Amino acid sequence: MFLSYLRLLLFTGALLVGVQVPGYIDSYSQRVEAHMLESREALSGFKETAERFFNGDLQALLRHYRSSDDPVFNSDANSIESLLVRNQALESEWQLLQGNVWVRTWHVLVQPDEQMREETLKAYNYQILLVPEAIAWGIGAGLLLALAVESLLRLLGWAILSARRRPVKESWR
């Protein structure tokens, strides 16, 4: 009876962890999108200047700032360059999150942007989403953990029992 309750407890715990996956992925995606929009807004003034004087080429604007002897322009060039690099990284991250559910899940769980991952984990609120994707993740995680633990316990039991069994010696009477 105790083992039945233990199985239920393991399954329920894994189910609750599993239903967090879609919520975490959604939270991560929203964070990336918010940073990307903020980055676009920060570059908007420079883009307008590039449109007006350099046919929209931000790299040409950057080269113009760098070629100036004015230290203020050189400092602004560094700022523009850091904004461009950050924007490109966020745009790339956003594109990865537009793939199918498996690509998105793999990326967020295995190869996320470290800064975004840390921010998402710090701000994440545990939630139980009752959407098909979360239910599937929960049941899948519950079944996998229950199967893994059950298999491990059976394997241990088999190893212990087989070690206890010693061959019976026949006596010569």
Rank of each mutant, 00 (worst) to 15 (best):
Pro132Asp: 01
Lys169Glu: 13
Ile139Lys: 04
Ser151Tyr: 14
Leu37Glu: 10
Arg165Lys: 12
Leu3Pro: 07
Val21Lys: 02
Leu8Lys: 11
Glu51Lys: 09
Val32Ala: 06
Lys122Leu: 13
Gly99Cys: 11
Gly142Ala: 00
Glu93Asn: 04
Val32Pro: 02
Phe53Gly: 04
Leu9Ala: 12
Ala123Gln: 14
Glu118Cys: 03
Leu6Asp: 03
Asn100Tyr: 07
Glu41Ser: 11
Arg63Leu: 14
Phe46Gly: 03
Arg104Met: 09
Phe11Pro: 00
Gly45Asp: 05
Val21Trp: 02
Leu129Thr: 08
Leu145Cys: 06
Gly140Met: 09
Asn87Arg: 05
Leu62Phe: 04
Glu33Gln: 12
Asp113Asn: 15
Val19Asp: 00
Leu8Gly: 13
Glu48Trp: 02
Gly140Phe: 13
Ser29Gln: 11
Asp57Val: 02
Tyr65Gln: 10
Gln111Leu: 12
Leu37Ser: 05
Leu10Trp: 03
Asp76Pro: 03
Thr49Leu: 12
Leu15Trp: 00
Ala146Phe: 10
Trp158Cys: 08
Ala148Ile: 08
Ile139His: 03
Ile25Ser: 01
Gly157Cys: 12
Val72Gly: 10
Gln20Pro: 01
Asp70Ala: 01
Pro132Ala: 00
Ala123Glu: 14
Gly56Thr: 01
Ser151Arg: 15
Val131Asp: 11
Leu43Asn: 01
Leu6Ile: 13
Ser29Ile: 01
Tyr124Phe: 09
Leu37Gly: 11
Gly157Lys: 15
Ala34Arg: 14
Ala77Phe: 03
Ile25His: 01
His64Arg: 15
Leu144Pro: 04
Arg154Pro: 06
Arg7Lys: 07
Lys47Ile: 06
Ala42Val: 14
